[in-house]
Amino acid sequence: MISYTPLFKTLRSKGLSVWDLPELIGFSTATSQRFNNNEYVTLETIDRIACSLKIPITDIVEIVDYETGEKINFESRSTKKVKVMIGNLKLLRKKRKLSQVELAKVIGFTQSQISKWEKEDTLISIDTYNKIVEKMDLTEEEISLIRIEE
């Protein structure tokens, strides 16, 4: 869910409020009311605020969890890649008597993705690698068979 808490903080730091925005940016007071009620506004409106105040979008909106209302930290997701010897992953999958479809279901991917991985050594995200290790309950010895340290 979108929250405008960063906008309110940014405006306060500049000695402004959402009620100053119609005059500064050129939109209606109804839009200010939408911000106040934490209702959706157009991306164009957010763009106009960012450009007019010369601030990044993160100073206007943030994404919060619907249930808890807590800010979601997307930066904690890893983009690091791990090279994996997929041939050995295939052996471990077969050792556990799992089909590609079953493994795909367990780790939340498609059978075609598993098939693609099993054709050659590949780079996968560290998050995917960790999911495979966890869901297949790999031992340290088995982990050493699939991961290529770089």
Rank of each mutant, 00 (worst) to 15 (best):
V106S: 11
I46A: 06
Q100K: 10
Q113F: 11
R77T: 10
R93M: 10
A104I: 07
V64R: 05
D47I: 07
M85D: 09
D47M: 01
I114P: 15
E70T: 09
T79Q: 09
K116M: 11
L53A: 01
I46D: 07
Y66S: 14
V82R: 03
K95R: 11
I55L: 03
I114T: 11
E102N: 06
L103K: 05
V106M: 14
K105W: 02
F74Q: 02
S76E: 06
I49M: 07
I86T: 08
I57V: 15
K97T: 10
I63D: 02
T68W: 01
V106R: 09
K97M: 06
R48D: 14
R77N: 07
N88H: 12
T68I: 09
S99L: 05
V64E: 04
L89P: 03
L103Y: 04
S52F: 07
I57C: 02
N73G: 04
A50Q: 05
R77L: 13
S112G: 11
T58C: 06
I86Q: 08
I63M: 08
R96N: 10
D65K: 03
V106D: 13
T45H: 01
Q113I: 12
I114W: 03
T110G: 14
R77C: 06
V61R: 05
K81A: 07
S52H: 07
K90Q: 09
E67Y: 12
L92F: 06
R96E: 09
Q113A: 14
T110C: 00
G87H: 10
P56R: 13
P56G: 02
L89T: 09
V84G: 01
V64Q: 01
V84D: 00
S99M: 02
A50G: 08
L92S: 03
T110I: 02
L98E: 13
S112L: 09
Y66H: 11
R48P: 15
F109P: 04
G108V: 07
K83N: 10
V64F: 03
Q111E: 15
R93H: 07
F74N: 08
V106F: 04
E70Q: 12
I63P: 07
K97Q: 13
S76H: 00
K97H: 14
I63K: 04
E75G: 09
L89Q: 03
I107F: 12
M85E: 12
L98V: 04
E67R: 06
K90Y: 06
K95G: 06
L89G: 02
K81V: 12
N73I: 04
S115N: 15
L92T: 08
K81Q: 11
V61N: 02
M85I: 10
T79W: 00
K105S: 14
T79G: 13
A104R: 05
E67K: 11
G108I: 04
N88M: 10
K81P: 04
V101Y: 06
K95M: 12
I55A: 04
V101R: 00
L103W: 04
S99K: 02
L89W: 05
Q100R: 11
I86E: 03
Q100G: 15
L98S: 08
D65G: 13
I107K: 01
K71E: 11
K54C: 03
P56K: 14
M85F: 10
V84F: 01
L92Y: 00
K54I: 01
D65I: 13
I86V: 11
R96P: 05
S112N: 13
K80Y: 00
D59P: 05
Y66D: 14
V106G: 00
S78Y: 05
